[in-house]
């Protein structure tokens, strides 16, 4: 149930529990995780499990919402009605995905407004990828192919997350997301096979710009991800950052070949021993720069979000006032 309104959970009791009881709850929780059981909103859970989930789910939700901006930028300039309809549907999906995730976050006892406040004040992060600009129409296709491709690879394992409301939201999202990647690839393939020389160059240029930031979407290397072990123990994370990144590279190489573009990494090479593609070093200083607010578009993205929220304040208030008035009329009748 996606709700925190039926507040009958053992959440408040937990604070007054005796240590022995708490110990027992913790043990029971660990057993359930080990048995592969799902945890529901009102089940007892360790505070840090709850906190980790709130952080991860809200960041995920923010990423969906902020992710509407770089592509929304191209709705009015799509090259045909067909591409415009597709892009509209995709951006609308991202809004829906944000909503599913905020709802999952709310089951953990944090409000929608609290999560948005954290985003708007810069306390909460969102995926670093959305702080890069969409310079040409080919960027829209490459975002579908690489960015959504990386997102899907990240998200599929979360469908088996131990926290059931999050897992359910992810199942729905993954089902809808696969069209996002396919439409992007198809749009690029159209330009590569039927386009002009300039269009092909545009696809290559967009690929060059988005490749490395896409690889960064999987997060820091395993050796520098101190929380990974705990998240794995809790069944929140199923596959490590580096393993997912490798899986993505292996898939993308073949896709690039079909498309007829090169990937901007001279060190990309098949390794017959590992049976994986080797790839060059990622510039993690760029990643941290962008995460910490100094990417090309951080300020602009956040300012756009905050403006949309502030400009919509009167609508939210008016809707509530209207609802109150209607229920007064009904009561008086």
């Amino acid at each position: 149930m996606y709700t925190q309104a039926m507040d009958l959970g053992p959440k408040d009791e937990a604070k007054t529990l005796k240590t022995a009881e708490e110990h027992q709850l913790q043990q029971r929780f660990d057993e359930r995780i080990d048995a592969g059981e799902f945890i529901e909103a009102k089940d007892w859970m360790p505070d840090n499990y709850r906190k980790t989930l709130v952080r991860q789910i809200s960041q995920h939700a923010h990423s969906e919402i902020v992710g509407m901006l770089p592509e929304g930028n191209w709705i009015g300039r799509a090259p045909s009605l067909k591409r415009k309809s597709i892009l509209l549907a995709k951006v609308q999906d991202e809004g829906g995905h944000g909503l599913y995730l905020y709802a999952a976050g709310e089951t953990l006892g944090t409000s929608r407004d609290q999560m948005l406040e954290a985003l708007h004040t810069g306390k909460a992060k969102y995926s670093s990828i959305f702080n890069y600009p969409t310079l040409t129409w080919a960027d829209v296709g490459v975002i579908g192919w690489l960015v959504d491709g990386a997102a899907i690879m990240n998200q599929v394992p979360i469908c088996r997350c131990s926290y059931a409301p999050y897992a359910r939201a992810m199942v729905r999202i993954c089902r809808e997301e696969s069209f996002h990647q396919r439409q992007g690839f198809e749009s690029l393939l159209t330009m590569m096979t039927h386009g002009t020389e300039a269009q092909r160059a545009m696809v290559q240029d967009a690929t060059n710009r988005w490749w490395w930031p896409s690889l960064m979407m999987f997060g820091p290397p395993d050796a520098e991800s101190p929380n990974t072990a705990q998240s794995m123990r809790w069944g929140i994370k199923r596959i490590s950052n580096d393993d997912l990144r490798q899986k993505f590279v292996d898939a993308a190489v073949e896709q690039a070949r079909v498309l007829g573009v090169s990937l901007p990494d001279p060190e990309l090479k098949w390794n017959p021993e590992r049976e994986h593609w080797d790839f060059g070093a990622i510039d993690w200083s760029e990643f941290w720069r962008v995460v910490n607010g100094h990417g090309p578009n951080n300020k602009e993205r956040l300012a756009t979000r905050v403006k949309a929220w502030d400009d919509g304040a009167w609508v939210r208030e008016a809707a509530l006032a209207h609802a109150a008035k209607q229920s007064n009329v009904k009561e008086a009748a």
């Binding site: 996606y2 709700t3 909503l99 709310e106 929608r112 939201a169 809707a319 209207h322 609802a323 209607q326």
Partner: peptide
């Protein structure tokens, strides 16, 4: 299938 916020 899920939840949402709405005024009325």
């Amino acid at each position: 299938c899920g939840s949402l916020h709405a005024a009325d």
